[in-house]
Design a protein around this nucleic acid. Structure first.
Length: 515
RNA sequence: GUCCCCAUCGUCUAGCCUGGCCUAGGACGCCGGCCUUUCAAGCCGGCAACACGGGUUCAAAUCCCGUUGGGGACGCCA
């Protein structure tokens, strides 16, 4: 059974990081210009990349890979490159590219170079592939795709490792007549060692390596070849990517060597999993970065959540972007896979909503208010009013969606009184008290929090009522609901006219109500 | 099946490299309390973990080996 491939762009091969001293030493002129500096302590300019394939939206896993690359680049004052790996003609789409770029921008991961597209670099791959052919490091393979598939199945059935048997290796085909793919002649003896920045030393026997196809019969390069060429040509110093690529690393290293390119450092991030511990996918819920935008999450909250998924700095949970950049390093990156926990993300978002500037939230909130039908009213509100409204809900809403829902009654005219709430609190018995309160409020010169509260308290004392006995009916009349921010804050925000109108309407309903 | 990776509370993690300060700390969630005009927020408290088995050592969550469990990869996908 084939594993689900929907990590989407999360499968993108990208990133890298490491201790400065692990950087490749300078060579040649530069090095001899600074003979006093120990080679081992010289850091080459860090260059990393995020390399999604445009076959779907920007996945949560992909975003985290991009984030770690970005953090490393910023931490090292290096360069972060965005490269679109679109060599799969059948699955790559323009829309997906745009959606990925939008996702990257929303989340604030600005790239310094690119986006490069592999399909615009075809000549580069073909040239290198042909060079390998000429040097006898690659060979034409005329085995039909279906035939290979067939052999693979047979091997699987017999419990053998499916591997190309190398039958075209010795054929020495120089000018294939029909369809032919170019294969890389992989080393079969010895070992390939990866000194991974996250996993540590990983050793592979070269006997497990396949002669992989580097150029398809349609002329397009395959992933394992184009990454190597691009990483080398773009001067990538650290390849930071998902650990689903760890097995690809020993296949790519010999290609770097055959091409005569320096080998970058590698760092393999563990995967993000769903609650059932399987690779995070659609069935676990939303996995698209932009879906979180639509659900009312703040980008910095998502980023903060993601960075803590696999990275830590002591007990700290909340990090500003600047702090993350400052503290980030690979030696606190977890080796094991992490389960994505929507609950904690929600908490994180709540933290950021609480900390944010009301004015900014107000702007972000408008589209969500549109969705609940009060966007127009919000746009018509006096300048600054919406921000005041937002301020009342900052510690009550965990997402902008929740905030929009909670804020609805304050923008609605007339207010919709929830049936249960009205039936329970707007009863004939409370009418006299409500009427008196309305009169007093009408007579209050300064319609603001403190005087209103004073008037209110005076009244309940005179009437021998408890706070809640009158507060709840008032709350329902004014907000239509039994839960709201502080009553007097809400009333002050609504203002004299609207409050009194709502109170009067509430009284009407209370008179009709049967208790 | 083969190869590779991983293994501390339900979840994210600190501690592990440089054994003793760990009767294992923090966070989310959950439970209880305080505050309180409702709802939140906040504060206080509680429940809850070193996968198992050997070994090394005066001493192991920390080092070694094995077992088990989980994950990933085995494409003319990336």
């Amino acid at each position: 059974m084939r594993a689900e491939r929907d990590h989407g762009s999360g499968r993108a091969d990208s990133g890298c990081q490491q201790e400065p001293r692990q950087g490749r030493p300078l060579t040649g002129r530069l090095a001899s210009t600074f003979p006093a500096i120990k080679r081992a302590s010289i850091v080459s300019h860090v260059k990393v990349r995020f390399a999604p394939s445009p076959t779907g939206y920007l996945h949560i896993g992909g975003a985290r890979t991009a984030l770690f690359n970005w953090l490393w680049a910023r931490h090292e004052k290096g360069t972060f490159i965005l490269r679109i790996e679109d060599t799969d003609q059948d699955r790559s789409t323009e829309e997906a590219i745009q959606i990925i770029l939008d996702g990257m921008k929303w989340v604030g991961l600005e790239w310094d170079e690119g986006p490069y597209r592999q399909t615009e670099r075809m000549e580069l791959y073909r040239e290198r592939a042909m060079a390998l052919l000429e040097q006898g490091k690659a060979y034409w393979c005329v085995c039909a795709a279906e035939e290979l598939e067939q052999r693979r199945k047979e091997a699987q059935a017999k419990g053998l490792t499916p591997k190309y048997d190398g039958r075209c290796r010795a054929r020495g085909i120089t000018k294939p007549t029909g369809e032919a793919a170019l294969r890389f002649m992989a080393p079969q003896e010895g070992q390939t060692v990866v000194e991974d920045l996250i996993k540590g030393r990983v050793v592979f026997d070269n006997s497990v390596l396949d002669d992989l196809i580097i150029l398809r019969s349609n002329g397009y390069p395959t992933y394992n070849f184009s990454v190597v060429v691009d990483d080398a040509l773009m001067g990538i110093t650290h390849v930071i990517r998902g650990d689903d690529h760890l097995n690809n690393t020993p296949r790519q290293i010999p290609i770097f060597q055959a091409l005569g390119y320096p080998i970058p450092r590698f760092g393999h991030l563990s995967m993000i999993m769903g609650a059932d511990k399987a690779k995070l996918s659609k069935r676990h819920g939303a996995t698209s970065v932009l879906a979180y935008k639509d659900m009312g999450y703040l980008p910095e909250a998502l980023i903060n959540y993601l960075v803590r998924l696999g990275w830590s700095h002591g007990d700290q949970e909340i990090f500003s972007m600047a702090e993350m950049i400052d503290k980030f390093s690979f030696d606190h990156v977890q080796k094991s896979a992490a389960v994505f926990n929507p609950e904690k993300l929600l908490w994180m978002n709540a933290q950021y909503i609480k900390q944010s500037e009301p004015a900014r939230l107000a702007t972000l909130l408008v589209p969500f208010l549109d969705q609940v039908g009060v966007g127009e009213a919000a746009r018509k509100a006096p300048a600054g009013w919406l921000a005041r409204l937002v301020a009342l809900f900052q510690e009550r809403a965990r997402t902008l969606v929740e905030m929009a829902q909670a804020a609805t009654p304050y923008l609605q005219e007339p207010v919709e009184i929830e049936a249960d709430a009205g039936a329970k609190f707007l009863t004939p018995a409370i009418v006299p008290a409500l009427e008196k309160l309305t009169e007093r409020f009408a007579a209050t010169a300064d319609f603001s929090h403190a005087p209103l509260e004073t008037a209110f308290k005076q009244l309940i004392e005179e009437e021998g009522l408890k706070m809640g006995q009158l507060a709840q009916p008032v709350r329902v009349a004014v907000t239509g609901r039994t839960a709201s921010p502080g009553l007097f804050e809400v009333i002050e925000l609504l203002g004299r006219e609207r409050t009194l109108a709502r109170l009067r309407k509430g009284i009407e309903q209370a008179k009709r109500g049967n208790a």
